[in-house]
Design a protein around this nucleic acid. Structure first.
Lengths: 141, 141
DNA sequence: AACAACCATTAGCACAGCTAACAATAAGGA
DNA sequence: TCCTTATTGTTAGCTGTGCTAATGGTTGTT
């Protein structure tokens, strides 16, 4: 595909992604967790325990900001924060079981809402989208 | 496609959309406009002038929140706010030329960043993704 | 004319983003 | 070893964004 075609595709994909996430985000109010905390928790659940700096980098936020987000997660018992035994400057932040459950419940609601949308498509459209999603997953990795 | 297959596709699409937007969002720092203001400005540019309630609904925030976001846009001369002549309870909010320019510049940077990613894909992958994007655009409308 | 409904703003709270400054620990060189 | 420097995280203090409750105007209704 040439530059203009790629540009048009990127433009359409960008707009669609915005609409998609705006749609599913409505489901998050059921979790009772704020968006920044939910997002950080997601990184902990899928990425495993990590230091504050790692978590801040993953969320594209500065260390002081993440420090307070973690503080909130710990207060609500969704995560734990303990000193790293190897390097006592570092902290090791991890999701709790309750954190895992709450995150997974929220994510499941998002995915189900999206699935209901996709269900309305014709079967040929569903298959075309499925192939597109496979490609997209590699492209954004 | 059956329920499980749709669920898997929805799950993959959801994760990919998150990664995609997190990626392109980095370009926004060049605009010098905060994310909520940029998003509201985008609705004004693409949706045309509208009332505060309409803008708040589009952004899925409450009226007082949008009132202050608009206040910021007006202060920076990215939008105008004037009384609706037909119904003086309402306000008519519109993007300024400068607002249009700043938004379009930022969006263009986002799309270009995404395009560069898509460029790396094989031609057959690009075509498959293009078809998927067409389907997706209808699904989220 | 009185009352109700609607639209936006203001007040006041909690939280999220930032930079600057600090405290604690680790690493390295004289 | 001891002093210096780098690294890691937190605290302080600011701006901005989200909410609910309350208020001020305007419009519509009876």
């Amino acid at each position: 595909m040439n530059d203009d075609q790629l540009h048009d595709m990127a433009s359409g994909l960008h707009a669609a992604a915005i609409r998609l996430l705006r749609m599913v985000r409505r489901e998050d109010r059921h979790t009772g967790i704020s968006p920044p905390r939910l997002s950080a928790l997601s990184v902990l659940v899928f990425g495993g325990p990590m230091s504050l700096a790692e978590l801040a980098t993953a969320e594209e936020v500065r260390a002081p900001t993440m420090s307070r987000i973690v503080e909130g997660l710990v207060k609500d018992e969704l995560a734990t924060r303990e000193a790293d035994p190897d390097n006592r400057r570092k902290v090791r932040i991890a999701a709790t079981e309750e954190g895992r459950r709450r995150l997974e419940g929220g994510r499941e609601r998002r995915v189900r809402a999206l699935r209901e949308r996709l269900r309305r498509l014709a079967d040929s459209e569903q298959r075309a989208l499925a192939r597109g999603v496979e490609v997209l997953e590699r492209a954004v990795r």
